[in-house]
């Protein structure tokens, strides 16, 4: 059976485990495990099972994939590593090329398509009272690079160029008040725009350049705590 270009893409940077499978640019399967607010993420249990389920549903074997896309964050460190380690193992065993996908870019993509005249900000819960943010202008240029940002600075960083901005993501829900005071629009809580979508992951995976398995590293943004305190100790000496 001849096949088009099959792209499997997944993300474990947020609490959700999201998997998408597209063939020739068309999303054929999207599966997600989204824990409730009081539940722990289930990346380790869900990720490969969802991938296998998506492939089975589409009747595609691992070796038939033309590339595998993995969300590299920013997001929770452990979640990111589960995704990247899984991608590395899959690539090692199937020789399918790997592609890194920015989690925030994937989060912003559907809104950028729906609202092409606005600046779009992706705002993800970074815990510790902060958000991971990035933003894109209506022209498609990234105006705010991936970073961790405290709530009181969100508006100053995101609306620096005073463009009309819409913000999405679980962080946008947490910091809705701070964003709206700064005239940044946030879609209603139940809007699907706040959720990372498998289709966006596949779309970015299809257009990004493949990487070697060893070049694939998470976009941690934050340093480990031990590194920060070591630097502080060294500086204060």
């Amino acid at each position: 059976m001849s096949r088009g270009r099959a792209v499997l893409a997944f993300d474990t940077a947020t609490a959700a485990t999201v998997v998408g499978l597209s063939v020739d640019g068309e999303l054929v399967c999207e599966l997600a495990d989204r824990p409730a607010a009081d539940e722990r993420p289930r990346h380790a249990e869900s990720l490969l099972s969802l991938c296998q389920e998506a492939l089975a549903e589409a009747g595609i074997a691992w070796a038939d994939l033309s590339r595998i896309g993995v969300g590299v964050g920013p997001g929770t460190f452990t979640g990111l590593r589960i995704g990247v380690a899984t991608a590395q193992g899959l690539a090692q065993a199937s020789a399918v090329p790997l592609v890194a996908v920015s989690t925030l870019e994937a989060l912003a993509l559907p809104v950028r398509t729906a609202e092409p005249t606005l600046q779009v900000a992706a705002v993800a819960d970074a815990r510790r009272g902060e958000a991971y943010i990035a933003a894109w202008s209506s022209g498609g240029e990234q105006t705010v690079g991936d970073q961790a940002c405290p709530p009181q600075q969100l508006v100053a960083v995101l609306a620096a160029e005073s463009a009309t901005t819409i913000a999405v993501g679980d962080g946008a829900l947490i910091f809705r008040k701070e964003l709206e005071i700064g005239s940044i629009a946030v879609p209603e809580d139940r809007s699907a725009l706040h959720q990372l979508a498998g289709g966006a992951l596949c779309q970015l995976a299809a257009s990004n350049e493949p990487l070697g398995a060893e070049a694939l590293v998470p976009h941690y943004v934050r340093q480990p705590d031990a590194e920060i305190s070591l630097q502080n100790r060294t500086e204060s000496k």
């Binding site: 590593r81 380690a85 899984t86 193992g89």
Partner: peptide
């Protein structure tokens, strides 16, 4: 160490599944 273990478990599982 759970974070360390998950790297090995994630990669080993993926290899076994893909093969």
């Amino acid at each position: 160490l759970i974070g360390a273990l998950l790297v090995g478990v994630g990669q080993a599982k993926a290899i076994a599944a893909a093969r």
